[in-house]
Each structure stands twice: as structure tokens, then as C-alpha cells.
Design a protein around this nucleic acid. Structure first.
Lengths: 253, 253
DNA sequence: TTCGACGATATGGTTAGAACATATTTGAGA
DNA sequence: TCTCAAATATGTTCTAACCATATCGTCGAA
């Protein structure tokens, strides 16, 4: 959370193409691309930055807001505006996808399928690349699942962490981000349905299949195991609570 | 582009959690989720809508701007603010991913791999589902490639359209959107390198392999063919112009 | 009558200045 | 040295006005 030297900002040329606030966005974006703004950095106060860039404060705020909307900046009243720094893997905001889903009537089946494809891809990569550390994490979550067969809430925690661990083992942060984007949208639904789950043991067993395939460095088997696991999960969810699934897709925001 | 009846908007309760502008965003988002705002709709003028929602115009504008940043709304000076209506498949803005790439130092290899995984998934689905119309489109673009072996620019057009057609044939708009998101980032680089391409014929041939696999309804073959095609493309690009690739990743915004 | 140009109106974009709310820092007092 | 309250820093919202552009209607010319 280091402060910035003031001299990296340049005054905006009012005759550049695009509107003034667009120009503010470009300016900030390019500073990020050039590495002058790094995760955790704090921007100068709005009043100062507006002067430096040569625009009014509302215009500057408009630019900041646009970048905040896509998850790059974060403003905290009284504290300042910061470049987002995530602890875990980089996270893309899923609300744009949610809105697109509503606008274009994406079905939950389509959403499930997208998740399945992404998870299969990630599982395949993980089988090829997982380090022993990754293997250990996976194993740990599997153990956690078997230890919480009678506690659906707890089971779900290990379930999600397992999928995160597989994604981490894949070594591809982009696919991981996209996967999380889709998974997030399906999450609320999942949390609701998990209470009614009757076959946690079978689910844990299928996770173990995925783990074994990864451990044996067999990408194709990992893909298949992941596919089967998610197919079962989808069927369970759909058969139990169609209405809530639809609800989740429509309402979540 | 129908105008909205004014009575679908509700006044905002200032005591709700979150800031006022957050509340505006939620309000608009929920109207989209509920289907009260549909693609192409025009929002009431800012001055009116601000009164209706019971907030000031700058606050309303802040909300609009946030939704515009994620590609859901679009404001046109003098005309109005509209819910985005895309002609083709729904498009997710790729700039958030670009920024994440810069912030977290995603490598171009990682980006390529993500694209490859997505395209393989999509090709596999296309092989299972493509209609005869889809087949025709694919075939047409293949023909276009062979017809423009001596015109790299034109070849690239058919190349991209082929990939779009495969995505369309997959029937999954979410995967298509994600694929395009990644592909868009790699596009500028591709356009630069295509001029130096020496093996357009080989590339066209590989596309044809993908097409044949889809036509024969062989998902696994389609995946393999797509993988080989993209691997070759990546190698060609990397070997020719490493510097420009890096440039593209850093600068594009 | 039809078509084009011009101007009026509608609408988003920008600026200014002030008041407000919350987070952080400072300093006084125990 | 620690704790808590006041002061300061900083983002948030509001009011009011003016600018820039798009749209649409009207008027005039062909």
C-alpha cells in the first residue's frame, strides 16, 4: 500500500479523441499496463489527482468509477482509492456475466455446461502439472469431505476448496478466473440444494476419482472424472429444485 | 428501441444498506433480471429518472456509468441511454481481463493456453451439435481461406469467421463469450503477425481438419484438430515476433 | 409534392462549489 | 505507555448551471 510519487501522472490533453472521462480511463489504464500502478497502490486524493490531470473532480470520479466497476480500483470513503489487490487468484467480477445471462436468457443448462467445460479443461491441465504441494491440498480436501459426510454445509466448503485447488494446480490463472466467474453464479443455488443432498458419499467418491487421475498424471481420466462428477451434481440439482435454480439465475445480481 | 413506461421505476429507499449509488445500480440490475429492461430499451432521460428514483443526477449518473463500464448500458450524447443490444452473440468486455493480465503479469503463453482450452471445448461441442446450416458456414469459410492464400489480410478474416462459426455451432453462448473475450486480447497481435505468415496453406489445411471432424460428428477428433491448429499458430507467432506479442499484452487496453 | 438544409429541442457530458459521512491520524490525558 | 476523543483526510452526495451533440420538425427550394 505504498503511496505514489506524484510525477507519474500527466496532464490530459483536452483535444484527444473521445470524451474527457474516456481519456481519464485510458490514462489510468495505461499506467496500469505500464506497471506504474500496481496492486495495492493508493491513488492520490481525488482533489489532487483532478488538478494533476487537468479535469474536474466529477469527471475524474466518472473515470475512477468505471474502473471500479470492472474490479480494478476500489474506493474506500475516508481512506482513499486503491488498485485492487487480491489475496487469492485474480478475480473477475461475475456480475457482467449475470446481467448478460438475464438479458439474453441464458439457461441454467448452458451455464452448467460452460462450467463443466472449464472444469474439465482445468482438471486436464492439473493432471499434467500438479506439484506435490497441490496433490497434498487436494488430498486434504478429499479427506475433509469424507470427514463431513453428515454435515452438508461443511462438506460444501471442502467441495469448493477442492475445485479451487484443482484450478490452482492447473497453473492457468486465466482459466481459473473464468471458471470462478461461472461457478460464482451457480454457487448460491448450490448452497441451497446441498442441504437436501442425500448422496454426499457418492459425491466424495467422485471427487476422489478426480484426485486419483490427477495423481496418476492422467489428463484424460481427470477430465472424464470431472465430467462425471459435474454431470451428477447437475442432475441432482435439477431434479431436486428446478424452481430455485431458475430463481437463482434470474435474481442473483 | 421502445421507450419505457415510467411506472416500472420505484423510488429508492435512502436507508437501504450500501451507498446511494450502489442502490441505483442494484435497482437497475434487478430491473434487468426481472426482464423489465430489455436489450434495446431506452432509459428515461437522466433528469427524469433521477427524480423518479429520488436521487440527484450525479448519483444516478454514477450508477449508469458503472453499468456502462461492464457493457450493459450505453449512453449516447444527445440521444439517450440504452440497454445494449448486440447483433451477434452477447459480448463480454475484454478490458477487465486485459487489466488483470497487466496487474498480475499473465504471460502470453497462459493466454494462449486459455484460448486453446476454450476453443477445444467449443469444437468438441460443435462436433456433437452443429446443424447443417452451421456446417455450411464452416465450409464456406474454409473455401474462403483456400481462395485467399495469397492475401493474408483476407485470410485472417475467414480465419476469424471460421472460429466464430465453430463457436456458434457449439450452441453455448457463455463459452462463446468467454472465448471471444480471450481471443480479442490476442487479436491485435495476430493481425500484426499474419503479414509474415508463410504457411497459410498449412493453416487452411488444419482448419479443414477441424471442419471434417465436426462434420463427422467426432468430438474428440475435433478437439485434437483444434489443439494442433492453435499450437501451430502459437508457435508461428512466438517464433516470429516475441517482442510484439509482449507488446500487445502490455499495451492493449 | 418531395427532398434537403437549418434551427429548435432533447439529452448526455462537464464544471463549479459546497455540505456530508466515514476512515485515519494526532494528541491530550490517564 | 496506553486509550480515547478531537482533528484531519478523503470519498460521497447534492444543487445549479452551462456545453456539445443527436434528433426531429419545419420551412424553403427544386
Amino acid at each position: 500500500m505504498t503511496d505514489l510519487r506524484g510525477d507519474v501522472f500527466r496532464t490530459i490533453d483536452p483535444e484527444r479523441p473521445g470524451s474527457t472521462s474516456e481519456e481519464v480511463i485510458s490514462q489510468l489504464r495505461e499506467m496500469i499496463h505500464r506497471g506504474e500502478l500496481r496492486p495495492g497502490d493508493r491513488l492520490p486524493p481525488e482533489r489532487d489527482l483532478a488538478k494533476i490531470l487537468g479535469v474536474s473532480r466529477p469527471t475524474l470520479r466518472a473515470g475512477i468509477r468505471s474502473l471500479a466497476a470492472v474490479g480494478v480500483l476500489q474506493s474506500r470513503q475516508g481512506a482513499g482509492t486503491f488498485v485492487v489487490k487480491s489475496d487469492g487468484p485474480p478475480a473477475l467480477d461475475s456480475s457482467p456475466l449475470r446481467l448478460m445471462a438475464s438479458l439474453h436468457g441464458f439457461t441454467s443448462a448452458e451455464m452448467f455446461e460452460a462450467r463443466q467445460s472449464l472444469e474439465m479443461a482445468v482438471a486436464g491441465l492439473a493432471a499434467a502439472r500438479a506439484t506435490s504441494d497441490h496433490m497434498a491440498s487436494l488430498s486434504e480436501e478429499i479427506a475433509g469431505m469424507f470427514a463431513s459426510l453428515d454435515d452438508p454445509e461443511q462438506f460444501l466448503v471442502h467441495d469448493m476448496r477442492f475445485h479451487q485447488a484443482v484450478a490452482a494446480a492447473s497453473g492457468n490463472r486465466i482459466l481459473t478466473s473464468l471458471m470462478n466467474m461461472v461457478a460464482t453464479i451457480l454457487f448460491d443455488v448450490r448452497r441451497k440444494t446441498v442441504k437436501h443432498a442425500t448422496d454426499l458419499k457418492e459425491s466424495a467418491e467422485m471427487h476422489r476419482q478426480v484426485y486419483r487421475a490427477i495423481r496418476e498424471r492422467n489428463p484424460e481420466a481427470a477430465r472424464i472424472a470431472m465430467r462425471d462428477h459435474l454431470m451428477l451434481a447437475q442432475r441432482a440439482q435439477e431434479s431436486e429444485r428446478i424452481s430455485e435454480v431458475e430463481d437463482g439465475l434470474e435474481r442473483a445480481g
